[in-house]
Design a protein around this nucleic acid. Structure first.
Lengths: 203, 203
DNA sequence: TCAAAATGTAAGTGAGCACTTTCATTTTAG
DNA sequence: CTAAAATGAAAGTGCTCACTTACATTTTGA
């Protein structure tokens, strides 16, 4: 019975390397991450890394597959009530949390995509999954006559642009803006804005 | 009378180095840009680069100052008519054009800011300038009773988030989304969305 | 238990790259 | 025109880093 109270958590070396590599690659990017540093953080010999993955690029691409993996939007979708405001609040909450949690990885992927074009797909996966979810939701709400909407993709893209732009662009520089505004306040505003567009009150 | 029809445009070596460095740094980032490549692109000897700037980091920071320089929003501000829709269209046009033109530089700055925290300011300069402009505009419109607005900074931030998120996040992956939607269509939608929020038609 | 597979240690190799040095050549300015 | 300043050519230095090799040790699984 190995690994009950021993100091180093005895996960398989391969996975420890992947975890350490992910952490370093996400923050520092490909070039500033050294195989030596990954091995040290993973608590393995550097040569083990090369025996497992061959070379640094292969390890990098393995890491991307792991972190670029899609999130379970289906579970979120089952929690939608049909109440427009509540649902938009829920969707924006999940999307904001995801983008803010993953902001290092996203920044890195956006940058490295110039040099590794294959990983543009990994970068696009989650945003486009969220847009698809929003489109299904908007279409359903429109068919139920609850919202006024011309093109659900345009609206969904606009919504995701706002969420993404705030999480990746504005929030990280919020300390340099006139006043600090909490994520919750911004999220409430996002929902308020889209309710005004979607609700067929006027016209 | 030098440089009338001669092949290499005889700008000063220092400026040619800065231009070549900017081009390479913007696309490839700090690490993947070599001083050798900069010198070759600038058409100077590598040693000239070191004599002019001392080292690579100093050159890099000089480049950032040059490309991070603020844009003249004041000129844009004088062109605002007072008509909400026309003004939002104009502002969004300029902002979108700027962010899309500078997307390589912005991606690079977002990434390198982790390693060079000083340049977060250069990154924030233009977005926060645009937010400030929008705030002034919204406040003026509110005082004139033309729009209904609670906190102009929140609204301005939301608007800029949407523009930024589209230009930097969604537009570059638009080929991986359900259908291609033009920048113009998205811009029109952005304005439509904010008109609905700002116009005090209901309530 | 025991052979095979995985991991560790240690030393080294070779390439890329920032940066220097020396000396020759060109450009600029008074 | 001429001295000084700027630029170039070429060779080299030293460091980092990905990756290899050879051999010892540990872990695993039947």
């Amino acid at each position: 019975m190995p690994n009950t109270t021993s100091a180093p958590p005895k996960k398989k070396a391969r996975q420890r390397i992947l975890d350490a590599a992910a952490e370093s690659f996400q923050l520092l990017g490909y070039d500033r991450t050294t195989t030596q540093a990954i091995a040290a953080k993973a608590g393995v010999a550097e040569v083990t890394l090369f025996r497992q993955f061959g070379d640094k690029q292969t390890l990098f691409k393995s890491v991307i597959q792991q972190i670029g993996g899609g999130v379970n939007f289906e579970m979120l979708e089952t929690h939608l009530s049909g109440n427009l405001e509540a649902d938009l609040l829920l969707i924006s909450q999940h999307a904001l949390r995801f983008f803010i949690d993953q902001q290092d990885a996203i920044r890195m992927l956006m940058f490295e995509s110039v040099h590794f074009p294959e990983m543009k797909a990994a970068l696009a996966q989650n945003p486009s999954g969220m847009i698809a979810l929003l489109m299904r939701y908007f279409d359903k709400q429109r068919d139920a006559g609850k919202v006024q909407i011309a093109d659900s993709q345009i609206t969904a893209q606009a919504f995701m642009s706002m969420i993404f732009g705030y999480a990746i662009g504005m929030n990280p520089i919020s300390d340099l803006l006139p006043a600090q505004i909490s994520v919750e306040k911004m999220r409430a505003e996002f929902v308020r804005i889209f309710l005004a567009t979607l609700k067929p009150t006027n016209q």
